[in-house]
Design a protein around this nucleic acid. Structure first.
Lengths: 133, 133
DNA sequence: CTTGATCCTGTAGCGGCTACAGCATGTATA
DNA sequence: TATACATGCTGTAGCCGCTACAGGATCAAG
């Protein structure tokens, strides 16, 4: 008779999404408004947990919340195609690669800067000299 | 007799920092409050331009504004040492490398996901299947 | 004298959370 | 049963580094 009611705390632990983040996702409409029990607390079912885990995995892959919204829409649509999902994934992959190349450029420059300087107590710093014109 | 007054527009063009960003930097105290001419417009000298160029270069290397604040403090200090600058640079380099490795992991996962899917019109998507539990 | 460029202040928004304050409940233990 | 602590709620503000207005003042050129 007494069903276990999954609270925000348990679904947070199970999905790996922080409580405040779950409430935030609800507020921005990324997940639906949850049902409440008679004292006003949110109650969750396994599908909710799955959705949150999905979101967490997508976030770990760097997808934006907007991308995730699209993925969730596609996932819930009957006439979606594989191609749409793949396109979204590849567009995101391209943006990851672009950020990667930015970071690689930074890394190379910083490495060169660092190597130009021997450290120690000298007040004349080649790093500053290179950054100031 | 008539000196050229460098306005925010010209110093923006010369330093490569957007006008709004310059005003923002002033607001947060990253650059000093500028002098004004008699109609209230900010006037800049070559040192200001140099400082803004420095900031832009640091931003291109991914330094945070807080880091840049420290670098500017050190640059303006008489008893700073090379080591302090180098330490800051290397700490930042380490954080760039850490982000780099995050992004590389994302790239590999996204690549694998993308390759698992042939695209086309099928409604069964291996990408979604892998992301949903 | 008019037009258009440039400048000013102030405020709000972006993304994706995170961190409170100030309460109301729920649960476990003495 | 009393109490203590955990957990939940709403609402708001803050983080970073800008960016984008609105609504006005001033400047330079034709």
């Amino acid at each position: 008779m007494t069903e276990i009611q999954h609270t925000i705390g348990s679904v947070s632990r199970e999905s790996g999404v922080h409580i405040e983040t779950i409430r935030y996702y609800e507020r921005i409409g990324l997940i639906p408004r949850q049902q409440r029990n008679n004292s006003g607390r949110r109650i969750y079912d396994p599908q909710d947990r799955q959705r949150l885990s999905f979101i967490r995995r997508c976030r770990e892959l760097g997808f934006s919340l907007d991308d995730i919204r699209s993925l969730l829409d596609l996932a819930g649509s009957n006439d979606r195609t594989c191609q749409e999902i793949k396109d979204l994934t590849e567009a995101h992959l391209a943006s990851v690669r672009s950020r990667l190349s930015d970071l690689k450029r930074m890394e190379a420059s910083l490495k060169a800067l660092s190597q130009s300087c021997e450290g120690g107590g000298s007040p004349d710093c080649p790093i500053l000299a290179r950054l100031f014109v």
